[in-house]
Design a protein around this nucleic acid. Structure first.
Length: 338
RNA sequence: GCUGGGAUGGCGGAGUGGUCAAACGUAUCAGACUGUAAAUCUGACGCCCUAACGGGCUACCUAGGUUCGAAUCCUAGUCCCAGCA
């Protein structure tokens, strides 16, 4: 049995992943799947850098996918002459998480692989990419809103004790950092309390995989980020924030994204000019930190072929790598699942 | 020119005789991570040695001084800010 091809383009923000993906998709007649935890939200366009002017939909590719009691009707945009999936899939106030991504993007990928050419996953959300490559079982344990609400009031120490009581093994396996992370502790408790029977191992996928990472020095990334933030503000980012704020407020997950959360003070407290520059700087710094976090995630992922975008040859090098991979036939040795 | 306030680690900003290499915040660097992931959390952060416990050196504008001991008190100087002229 022939393995199915999947190309992944990842790396920190502001390194030109999308435009690389577009040119590769054109060349190899592929479809793009965004791996971006923020671009899944409708109407959050300028701040998240969606850049979907025109927004023409490819109706004939529409795909209906069921995930945790919801029916999602997915459809790609025509983006620079290439189909682009997983943008605008839910409203900002709708539930969305890795679990959704794993289900929806997974379905899109098989659909493309079975019926058309091949998919290119492109984005900077490491966990989402991970969920495609090795889907995980605990993703099926849905949040328990009651429990979360209760535990939100509880002190760190109490959370630790609670988890210790519910499942001491799990607690002992946690590292120092996670033991001090309330959100993680709550989720662990949630999983342990759920009656769901879980498989021990992650499910395995068996793609003919090529991972490409784009990067460069942090200093250069910071410069890129700063310029991009300024540009987004010029194109009306603030109006978008204001609109979202009026519609949803600042207290929903989608509003914790970079470029939104920083404006809370400006829109809620005092809206004078001096605050604008403070918030803008804050936004830039937060993006810097985000790029760093992305790097620490991706550094740990094995099998990524890294390219420095400062290298004048990088596009050429990627091109030949992909061409070689694309024409190469790889047979699956063990077809495994679950 | 006079009067008052101030000068602290990359930045902001505590500290007013010992427990201060100096709270806290922030930037920066590194790390974690499996239904909030652009989220959440952890560590480092004057220099040097040590695997670590720890130790050494240099530091709170500058120069002197008081004191067993000073970022903290005194004197002079430099610069900054505010009020007066």
């Amino acid at each position: 049995m022939k393995k199915k091809k999947l190309l992944v383009i990842c790396g920190p923000t502001a390194t030109g992943k999308t435009s690389l993906a577009v040119s590769l998709a054109k060349k190899f007649d592929a479809e793009l799947i965004s791996a971006d935890s923020r671009q899944v939200y409708k109407d959050m366009d300028i701040v998240t850098g969606k850049d979907l002017s025109g927004k023409e939909i490819i109706e004939k590719l529409r795909l209906s996918v069921r995930h945790s009691d919801h029916e999602y009707s997915l459809v790609p945009y025509m983006f620079h002459d290439v189909p682009l999936w997983m943008c605008d899939v839910v409203s900002p106030n709708e539930d969305f998480s890795v679990s959704h991504y794993q289900g929806l993007a997974g379905a899109i990928i098989s659909d493309i692989q079975n019926n058309r050419k091949f998919p290119i996953v492109v984005g900077g959300t490491g966990l989402y990419i991970r969920s495609i490559l090795t889907p995980f079982e605990t993703a099926s344990v849905a949040p328990d809103e009651h429990l979360r609400k209760d535990l939100a009031q509880v002190s760190l120490e109490e959370l630790q004790n609670k988890l210790l009581e519910v499942d001491s093994e799990t607690f002992k396996n946690l590292n120092e950092s996670d033991r001090k992370n309330p959100r993680r502790l709550i989720r662990k408790i949630e999983i342990c309390l759920s009656q769901k029977k879980l498989l021990k191992n992650d499910m395995k996928t068996d793609f003919d995989l090529l991972l490409i990472g784009l990067t460069t020095s942090l200093g250069k990334i910071y410069k890129q980020i700063d310029a991009r933030v300024d540009a987004r503000i010029k194109s009306g980012a603030l109006d978008e924030v204001k609109k979202m704020q009026t519609l949803y407020g600042f207290d929903i997950p989608s509003m914790t994204g970079l470029g939104y959360k920083e404006w809370r003070e400006y829109f809620v407290k005092k809206s004078d000019q001096s605050v604008i520059s403070e918030c803008t700087q804050r936004w830039k710094y937060d993006e810097h930190a985000y790029a760093r976090r992305q790097m620490t995630w991706f550094r740990r992922e094995k099998d990524i072929h890294w390219f420095d975008i400062e290298d004048p040859q990088y596009e050429k090098n990627i091109d030949s790598l992909v061409s070689k991979w694309y024409t190469e036939e790889k047979n699956s040795v063990i077809a495994s699942s679950a």
